[in-house]
Deep mutational scan, measured.
Amino acid sequence: MDVFMKGLSKAKEGVVAAAEKTKQGVAEAAGKTKEGVLYVGSKTKEGVVHGVATVAEKTKEQVTNVGGAVVTGVTAVAQKTVEGAGSIAAATGFVKKDQLGKNEEGAPQEGILEDMPVDPDNEAYEMPSEEGYQDYEPEA
């Protein structure tokens, strides 16, 4: 019985440690998101679009440190934060509304985080759909 109880105690310690790591990862992701939003706020009209992409990228980098179902929630929060940063930029006159959601080359930025393969159960990952990809044929 002692062996059984000791095993359960060790398992509990492992769960607590994993929860603490997840909590730490979420806190880091939130900190990076805040950094990115402050970065966007300090940019001029020309830099705002690039700044919004930076927020998304920093958040995406930190999301990889967070495991399990938390990833889905962090990704949703990050996307809403990026959308909010863009709205703030438009409201303050840093950028025109028609410039939001495009990178410096004018290509749409939507789907940055949505296409990231995420499995809350950590069982399997699927690649994003290939609808947006084109076949590449090298020139002879």
Rank of each mutant, 00 (worst) to 15 (best):
E13Q: 13
K6C: 04
K58P: 00
M116I: 10
E110H: 03
V55Q: 01
G68F: 04
S87F: 04
A85G: 05
A17W: 08
V82N: 03
F94W: 12
V70N: 01
A90G: 09
E28M: 09
I112E: 08
G106F: 11
E105L: 09
V40I: 09
K80V: 08
A89P: 05
K58R: 15
E35Y: 10
K96L: 12
I88D: 02
K43G: 01
G86V: 12
E105W: 01
A89K: 07
A69E: 03
N65E: 07
P128N: 08
K58F: 05
M116H: 14
T44H: 01
V70H: 00
K45A: 13
Q99F: 11
K80C: 07
M5E: 01
A124M: 05
N122R: 14
G73F: 04
T92H: 06
V26I: 05
V82F: 14
P117A: 04
P117K: 05
T33N: 00
K97N: 06
V49K: 14
E57I: 12
A17T: 13
M127E: 09
V95G: 13
V3T: 01
S87W: 15
E137D: 08
P108Q: 10
V49N: 02
V66M: 05
A56S: 15
I112T: 05
G93V: 12
T64D: 03
T33F: 02
G93Y: 09
K80D: 01
K45V: 06
E57D: 13
V63M: 11
T33P: 00
E61G: 10
N65A: 13
T72I: 04
A69W: 15
Q99A: 11
E110P: 13
L8Y: 02
V70E: 01
A76H: 03
N122Q: 10
E123R: 08
V15D: 00
E13M: 12
K12T: 05
F94K: 04
A17I: 13
G41T: 13
S129T: 11
E57T: 09
T75F: 12
Q109E: 06
G73S: 10
M5R: 05
V74R: 01
L38V: 05
D121H: 14
D135C: 10
V16K: 10
E114F: 14
E130F: 03
K97I: 13
Q109K: 10
P128W: 12
T92G: 07
G25L: 15
D135E: 14
Q99G: 11
L113I: 06
V48C: 07
A17K: 07
K12E: 01
Q134V: 05
A29P: 00
L38S: 05
V95M: 01
P120I: 10
A85P: 05
V3S: 07
E114R: 13
V70R: 01
A89N: 01
K96G: 09
K102Q: 00
V3K: 13
E123I: 13
K45N: 03
H50E: 03
E104C: 05
E28C: 05
M127D: 04
I112Q: 04
P138S: 08
D115S: 07
A107Q: 07
T54H: 14
A69H: 12
A90E: 01
D119L: 10
K10H: 03
E104G: 07
V40L: 14
G47R: 15
V26W: 15
D135I: 14
G68E: 09
Q109H: 06
S87M: 15
E110C: 06
Y133K: 03
I112F: 11
V37H: 00
Q109W: 15
E131Y: 05
E110M: 08
V70A: 04
L8E: 00
H50Y: 09
L113A: 08
E110S: 14
S42F: 09
A30D: 00
A27C: 11
H50W: 08
V48H: 00
P117Y: 05
A17G: 07
N122W: 10
V55N: 00
M127G: 06
T72K: 12
K12N: 01
A124T: 02
L38A: 07
K43A: 04
N103H: 08
K10N: 13
V95I: 10
K96R: 07
T64I: 10
A85Q: 02
K6H: 05
A90I: 01
V16Y: 14
V3F: 03
G67I: 12
E46M: 15
A53G: 06
D115A: 12
P128C: 08
N103F: 10
Y133S: 02
I88N: 02
E130Q: 10
G51I: 03
A90Q: 15
A89E: 02
T54S: 05
V71M: 14
Y133N: 15
D121Y: 08
A90W: 12
K96M: 05
T22D: 00
Y133F: 13
V82Q: 11
T22E: 00
K32S: 06
Y133T: 05
N122F: 04
I88T: 04
E35H: 03
G132A: 06
L100R: 12
G132H: 09
V3W: 05
Q79K: 15
K96H: 11
Q99M: 08
A124Y: 13
T54Y: 10
P138D: 07
G41S: 08
H50R: 10
A29D: 00
Q109C: 06
G47S: 15
G25I: 09
H50N: 03
T44G: 06
E57R: 12
N103D: 11
E137F: 12
K34E: 01
Q79W: 10
K45F: 07
D121G: 15
D119K: 02
K12V: 11
E105K: 02
M127H: 06
A107D: 08
Q24G: 04
V16L: 08
E131R: 08
P138K: 06
K10Q: 04
L100D: 03
E123A: 04
E13R: 15
T64G: 06
A29R: 03
F94I: 02
A19L: 11
V37R: 00
V3R: 12
S129W: 08
E57M: 04
G14F: 13
G47F: 15
E131V: 11
V63A: 09
E139C: 03
T33K: 00
T33E: 00
V55S: 02
V71Q: 09
A19W: 10
A76N: 07
E137M: 06
G93I: 15
K34Y: 09
G41W: 09
G47W: 10
K6T: 07
K97M: 05
L100P: 14
